[in-house]
Design a protein around this nucleic acid. Structure first.
Lengths: 193, 193
DNA sequence: AGCTTTGCCTAACAAATGTTAGCCGGAACA
DNA sequence: TGTTCCGGCTAACATTTGTTAGGCAAAGCT
């Protein structure tokens, strides 16, 4: 049984939306079932537990993002290219699956051990990738010698912030958002301001 | 009976910490009581409900921030002064009561109507104050003609992001953080980059 | 046709939840 | 000294929670 039965995808999709709207712990297994016109117990044919759903959403997003940032650090050599591509990828991935992104960013802490620690590990790896980009910029004398941790975390909250207001039907398209954010961040980090 | 009995402050303080650590809906009235060496039912001598606690935390922070930004827009006339003071105040208020700040930012949506709508109204008013600052900068030809909503929300997520990593015992002091963030934001918005 | 698997069902459970009712000792106040 | 009231207690409540056991019909495979 592979990961993506149709029914299972529906469950994940519905759960994402509900988790986004009400938060993970306020969302009920019964609510998820009701939206699928199914009895609560029937969910357990497709999913091991409620937390299993959260798990798949969170790690699904984490893997996409990690893959993307590793690629960036592999392909590009200068800080400008790296940062631009990173922001582009990051914004693209979040906006492409907004519900999942929101859950990923806001609800991961409801994971329980040992998956919680594993998730945190992945997140640290992503931050590490970001610091690599910043280091590149410093080496090129493009960035100030800022605290790299500060820089990475500030970039992260800046780009992640879009999930609070991005609307697919709005007039700002992901690509434009990424461009603006890139400019904002690049200027914010740049040497000689 | 005024707002701040000693016992009541203890309840708020303990609740803030627990809400921060586990989230509002995962935190139990019984847990709060246990930390105070009290029976769960005894809480209700000081507080109307669990949500009442969340209410006071969220609106307490909201009022502090609103007061601060109104002051900024009253006192200062140029964008630079306004922005600098705003970031300073914002970072100061968040770091001064970190637990409350985290709950304020992450748990407000568990408020129920009609308080939820009222809270959202206050938040919008704060964003409006921010847009006023941005407008000042545009009028002075210091900022790009950016989408003001985009700008306000990006600034907000950038400064709010600190709650995810700020540690009072760390080596970055609030004032330094505010300075770095100010520079970051100012440069990010500035015309001619 | 017989067998297996899939996907749902009904029924139920044990645990945990927020909250209320009613009591009671001691401090504060008259 | 008598009375009020504050801040805690015990006991219990009705719901809601995630989850399991066991069955059953239809589809798919051999």
């Amino acid at each position: 049984m592979l990961a993506g039965t149709d029914r299972k995808r529906e469950i994940l999709s519905v759960s994402q939306r509900l988790f986004k709207e009400k938060g993970y712990s306020t969302t009920t297994v019964r609510e998820i079932a009701r939206e699928l016109n199914i009895e609560p117990a029937s969910l357990y044919s497709h999913v091991h537990s409620k937390e299993d759903i959260l798990d798949q959403i969170c790690f699904g997003m984490a893997e996409k993002l990690l893959l993307a940032i590793d690629e960036v650090n592999d392909i590009y050599f200068d800080a400008e290219g790296k940062l631009r591509m990173m922001v582009d990828n990051h914004v693209g991935i979040l906006t492409d699956d907004l519900n999942a992104a929101i859950v990923f960013i806001k609800e991961w802490r409801h994971l329980s051990e040992p998956r919680l620690s594993e998730f945190v590990r992945l997140r640290k790896r992503y931050e590490q990738g970001l610091r690599e980009i910043i280091q590149t910029g410093i080496d090129e004398h493009k960035f100030n010698e800022i605290d790299k941790k500060f820089g990475a975390l500030t970039i992260l909250s800046t780009v992640n912030g879009i999930i609070d207001w991005y609307k697919p039907e709005g007039n700002l398209k992901p690509k434009e958002i990424a461009d603006s954010l890139y400019t904002f961040i690049w200027s914010g980090l740049r040497l000689d301001n």
